[in-house]
Design a binder for these strands. Sequence first.
DNA 1: GCACAATGGGAAAACGCTTTCAGTGCGGCT
DNA 2: AGCCGCACTGAAAGCGTTTTCCCATTGTGC
Lengths: 356, 356
Amino acid sequence: MQSQVNRRSARPRPSSAVTLQQVAQDAGVSLATASRVLSDSDRNVTQELQERVLEAAARLRYVSNAPARALVQSTTSIVGLLVHDVNDAYYSAIAAGVMEVARDHKLLVMLAGTFHEPALQAEYVARLRAQRARAVILAGSGFTDGSPALAQELEAFAAQGGRVTAVAHQNLPVDTIVPGNREGGRAVAEHLAGLGHTEIGVICGPLALVSVQDRLHGFLERAAELGVVVQEHHRVEADFTRDGGRAAAVRLFRRSPGITALFALNDAMALGALAALRDDLGRSVPADVSVVGFDDLPVACDVTPALTTVRLPLEEIGRRALLLALGDATPSPRTLAVPSRLVVRASTAPPPRTTG
Amino acid sequence: MQSQVNRRSARPRPSSAVTLQQVAQDAGVSLATASRVLSDSDRNVTQELQERVLEAAARLRYVSNAPARALVQSTTSIVGLLVHDVNDAYYSAIAAGVMEVARDHKLLVMLAGTFHEPALQAEYVARLRAQRARAVILAGSGFTDGSPALAQELEAFAAQGGRVTAVAHQNLPVDTIVPGNREGGRAVAEHLAGLGHTEIGVICGPLALVSVQDRLHGFLERAAELGVVVQEHHRVEADFTRDGGRAAAVRLFRRSPGITALFALNDAMALGALAALRDDLGRSVPADVSVVGFDDLPVACDVTPALTTVRLPLEEIGRRALLLALGDATPSPRTLAVPSRLVVRASTAPPPRTTG
DNA sequence: GCACAATGGGAAAACGCTTTCAGTGCGGCT
DNA sequence: AGCCGCACTGAAAGCGTTTTCCCATTGTGC
């Protein structure tokens, strides 16, 4: 007895949406003709009929049913954008670049926040596959162990004709953008070593992240080349966030008070470190301790002292990522290197004299 | 003779996507049964068949064709989110709230950046209507003159069964979230007047924006009540950005050097003003000039001095906006007030003694 | 003036799915 | 034992498009 009620009330809606059929009727033409007028087909339609259809469509405020269209064409104008955290300036910047290209190409962007859960990442790719999205952009850095579930989903997506671009991922058989992480790490090492620092602390993000690994290894590599050894206990792993950076800085200085320079593997953590040095540790920057970040988020030049950091052209990365996915599929997978650049500001200086 | 060939080769792509038909075949059941198993219908299917279908689906990595599904159900799990600028922390925060609720409700979010062009706003609503989106959230503040094109599109969208929530809009016949803009403005007036400021400059965003108007009027209203008159030439209109705020601050102080407090109508502009005071005007904050912002973006506590501002619970606004759109449609349109709160930090202090 | 190509319009098929409707086999009741 | 009803499966209709196929009409060359 309840099934009746349920079934009725479950019926979604009258859905009074205007259909092409109605437009055709209103214009006094066939369905086929109306379709030809409104969906820039290559078939010609008489001026006269064309106008009648256009007018009817405008009058009825007709917009074509995208799902129906997608069904018959088996493609859509949707692209997916996967990020770890929507409310992170790093991803906002990338997203801005993506949106720009999307606007120019009349594409719709589906934004998916994975909330740092790897499982959600694969799930979203599956859903995007279900949507028959044209492309997916993995903006968030990948994990060094390469999640197999994600790889499988991407494979299925590609098999279906979807395009994929990954940013800072490893071992994924898709077009990949390689930001100058390693190179940026090297530049930081050079800068700090050049200033005369020898006791350098490093605040890492999750070591499982590809970009963390690249930045760290670039840094260690170049530091070693320059004769600066970063001791194991001068490195701490932290959340890739402001709070993570703050806590890590405190931990690090409690352990090794002699540190004169701090390299945080992204700006968010550097901001936290700055706060910790100022509020928790009472050290002044750059007089007592130099601080370097990574990414060059807009905030970097608004803090005091302005943060020395490595600039990654994030919007450009977003643009390139989508463009790559929109380009020829033939010589795939390709990789595209995007260079980074050290930006020296006020947060770095030579180490204090070892007053004795 | 050619028709044979054409029919095969004209098909857009092999589109090797797995269909439900194939799953059914693989499982040795009918299309209907497979559908019932995979689309949580209310009909029962034998344990045995259920397993066979599930197994086949997993083996073939089947995901249902969302457009096809949308076509028959005439609804989707898509919600649209319209913002003015993707790369603006204000919208990132709202978006984060929206994404959170979207994740919990298994919805897909289409993010549309209008790049401050009102025309794009209406166009995106139309495209979202074409997509049969379930709801649209207008996160960007509306214009006081209420764009008629947008209103029309929204009406059409609603007529089709779509839900709409607007944030800080006026005269739109849709559910609306009213952030405590006016109230926040009042709190700022009280704070500054209480400190003893009488020469207060205001850096406004575009006056056509509803939220700018609300913040400004709340401020002026309360200031007047407390006997503080903000002269016309102490108010400047600027871009709602950091650079806009910076330029405006310079302009304002050139014109009226006697100002002892500055109220920027959002944090981005306040940041610019801080930079201008420090780098261009050589005034110290808060000793010479007090500065107040609005929004309480995460940066606000990272700048020096930390910014006194009005906190708007942006993520909460995002969550509420989507929840509102997902709720009952019956008692619509509704309005939901979200309170703001003054957060006093280090950028405000009593005015300097009028040294004579 | 007539076969023939070219042009443009309309009927109908197909896209992949959900859901209705009609069936089939089975157990329980009188 | 026969019938009804129950529980399930499968065939088929339809969602709103695009696109094919076919037809009618017109213009063209001999």
